[in-house]
Simulated assay, not measured.
Amino acid sequence: MGKQFLKIAAVYFALGALLNVIIGVSGDYSLSNVQSHIHLLGWTTLGIIGLIYVAFPALSVTILARIHFWMHNIGLPVLVLAIIGKNYEVAEAGVWVVTGWVLLAAGIMLFMVNMWDRLR
């Protein structure tokens, strides 16, 4: 799973960088918080987790690692789109922000449990 985490981290890095260019060229900084979330929760977090899984392969072969991968990579796009919705005052966006955060937090808890269980 380590390689999958690193590959998807690179995708988030590219998306964040592209959004950064769009923000800079347009001069509209209303989506800066979206760009920050993509970089921190996508590129940085998933990159570090990928490196941990590469360094400790026993962590990456568990069902917890797979579930975490999918929860994180469903939760983050939901969160990012919901934040955009909040910026444009979409009424239902608040529910989706909570949904994205719950998925992200649950996935991160699975990562923590996996670490505590497998690293002895």
Score class of each variant (00 low, 15 high):
75 G>T: 02
45 T>D: 13
83 I>E: 06
44 T>H: 09
115 M>K: 11
93 A>N: 03
56 F>N: 04
21 V>K: 08
38 I>A: 10
57 P>D: 03
54 V>K: 10
14 A>C: 04
92 E>G: 08
110 L>V: 13
118 R>V: 09
4 Q>M: 14
21 V>W: 06
28 D>M: 12
28 D>F: 04
8 I>Y: 05
120 R>M: 11
54 V>N: 09
54 V>C: 02
83 I>Q: 04
59 L>E: 02
112 M>I: 14
80 V>F: 08
19 L>G: 08
87 N>S: 09
48 I>F: 14
60 S>L: 02
14 A>N: 04
29 Y>G: 13
90 V>P: 03
13 F>G: 04
26 S>W: 09
30 S>A: 08
50 G>R: 05
120 R>L: 12
62 T>M: 03
22 I>N: 12
70 W>V: 11
50 G>K: 00
86 K>A: 07
43 W>Y: 08
81 L>T: 07
52 I>G: 00
70 W>T: 03
67 I>Y: 04
106 A>L: 10
1 M>V: 12
10 A>S: 12
58 A>Q: 09
23 I>M: 09
13 F>L: 11
20 N>M: 10
114 N>S: 01
92 E>R: 12
18 L>G: 06
57 P>V: 11
97 V>S: 01
20 N>T: 15
25 V>H: 15
99 T>S: 02
16 G>R: 06
27 G>F: 02
31 L>R: 02
83 I>K: 09
104 L>F: 12
24 G>Y: 14
10 A>V: 10
18 L>R: 02
71 M>I: 04
87 N>G: 11
98 V>G: 02
38 I>R: 05
45 T>Q: 08
119 L>K: 08
23 I>R: 02
95 V>F: 10
63 I>M: 14
52 I>E: 07
88 Y>V: 14
46 L>M: 15
108 I>Q: 13
88 Y>W: 07
53 Y>L: 03
77 P>R: 06
47 G>A: 10
9 A>I: 01
100 G>V: 00
90 V>T: 11
64 L>I: 04
44 T>L: 15
97 V>P: 00
71 M>C: 02
49 I>A: 06
71 M>S: 05
50 G>E: 00
12 Y>T: 03
113 V>I: 13
26 S>Y: 08
24 G>K: 10
69 F>L: 01
1 M>N: 10
105 A>Q: 11
56 F>Y: 07
4 Q>T: 07
88 Y>R: 08
